[in-house]
Design a protein around this nucleic acid. Structure first.
Lengths: 256, 256
DNA sequence: CGCCGTAACTGGCCTGACCAGTAAGCTCAC
DNA sequence: GTGAGCTTACTGGTCAGGCCAGTTACGGCG
């Protein structure tokens, strides 16, 4: 009878609060509830869902922890629907980094891949406006070389963001953002050593100019190659020598 | 007095359940609580934290939704600490795909980047054992060409997983997994059209063999190029013509 | 017209209770 | 002695009702 036709899935008891979460998630995903709009008050939700307040609150806490809503103590308008953010993704990724023994080398090589690809795409797809934006950030870097490294790294970040944006791929943009954050939190002593700091900035600046030039001339492969090389030069020092293999594999053999 | 020296951050009221979440998260992250171990019962946690049961439960629901623990109704041993999984990351990424109007083109080009880079790294870093594993999956594909497309795509996935594993980068491995899943859920009618199915499989098989050959000879650039081209050929049909620019940008100009 | 106090909500948290599910231990028949 | 089955003492799931603190809108005051 039940030979081979039907496949069944493992079932788990569905708790009330989960149903509430699902309904609200669905409403947000479908656009019925837009960012900025408000949910009814907890007591009103109790009425609508026919559940008790603790149950409704469990659902709200989960939604809040997922970054979908925020409820403020005393707010007469009720919980607020939040705009979508990548904070959750970032949290998950740093969690991955901490739990699953993600090494510095892995993070950096991932960053090299993302940034390289972003540069490659940007070289092909950029508009003149976007190019101008990148140029703006590079001149900002030039000026910031004397203004201190906080300004410099700010302009640095702006450059990479401009490139990522020009890649026209939100996934690249977000991943890049997240990985950059993860790398930064892992390197606490980056701002150290005042003596070679200016030299480092100059090198970094020159590399960025080269990437920019490649993007200007729409040479995608060169942009990717130089971009990876830049990151390698900048970060290799933070990786033990015996772990640099993967990084080198990404910069080697891409032309002289 | 308060001239410019101190910078302050915006503060948000910390709720009780959050403190509980933090403590338990911390205990798990630090290794004090290992997967498989159990948390005390809710009532016991109420004692230890000095909070009420609804509050403790809110914390547990959040931890559960984050995939850190699981509590089963009636289980006398209490909530279980779960091993780390990438399910949360996958969830966040699909959420990103749904909310932030991620286009098919973006997903596919991201997949091309990841898979290409994985191939490139694998070509440099693979051991002979790993190479043998890849060869095994390709021969499985060869045999599956007559066995039906479910078997075939299974072997296909196995190949890409083997390559990703050989890349020695957990981040690539996970992202690839996640993106592959997202692409698959977006293509529901992939198994369609029986007539060209076998031809498609043959083409795909040939491409995979080429990638494998490049990995065998440790030619990273070729592996990356062919890998991207393979994905392009396979998926381009699902992307509107005017949106194929980014995809082409990733395959063009990488040598003839 | 602008300020300020107050009132009517809001969410945060608690107590205490009931029901349903699990598993260990006991009982008992074999 | 040993296995099957029942009992029991827990567990988590849910509810009702209540108190306190924070927010905001409104109306009265200057």
């Amino acid at each position: 009878m039940t030979a081979d036709g039907a496949r069944f899935q493992r079932v788990a008891p569905v708790r009330l609060y989960q149903r509430i979460v699902e309904q609200i998630e669905q409403a947000i995903a479908s656009g019925d509830l837009k960012p900025g709009q408000r949910l009814p008050s907890e007591r009103e939700l109790v009425n609508q869902f026919g559940a008790s307040r603790p149950t409704v609150r469990e659902a709200l806490r989960v939604l809040e922890s997922d970054g979908l809503i925020r409820s403020r103590h005393g707010d007469p308008h009720g919980p607020e629907i939040l705009p979508f953010t990548t904070a959750g993704l970032a949290k998950e990724m740093t969690r991955l980094a901490r739990f699953e023994r993600l090494s510095m080398a892995e993070l950096i090589s991932f960053r090299m891949i993302l940034d390289g690809s972003a540069s490659q795409l940007a070289a092909r797809l950029r508009t003149d406006d976007e190019l101008a934006a990148m140029e703006g950030t590079v001149t900002a870097m030039t000026h910031a070389i004397d203004a201190g490294d906080e300004e410099f790294s700010k302009a640095d970040v702006a450059f990479h963001e401009a490139v990522a944006r020009a890649s026209r791929n939100a996934l690249i943009e977000v991943s890049n953002l997240v990985v950059r954050g993860a790398v930064r939190t892992l390197i606490t002593d980056k701002v150290a050593h005042a003596d070679n700091r200016r030299a480092l900035m100059r090198t970094s600046l020159r590399h960025h100019q080269e990437v920019l030039e490649a993007i200007r001339t729409r040479d995608g492969l060169a942009a990717a190659r130089i971009s990876r090389r830049t990151l390698y030069d900048y970060y290799a020092g933070y990786v033990a020598e015996e772990e640099r293999g993967p990084l080198l594999a990404l910069v080697e053999g891409e032309g002289a």
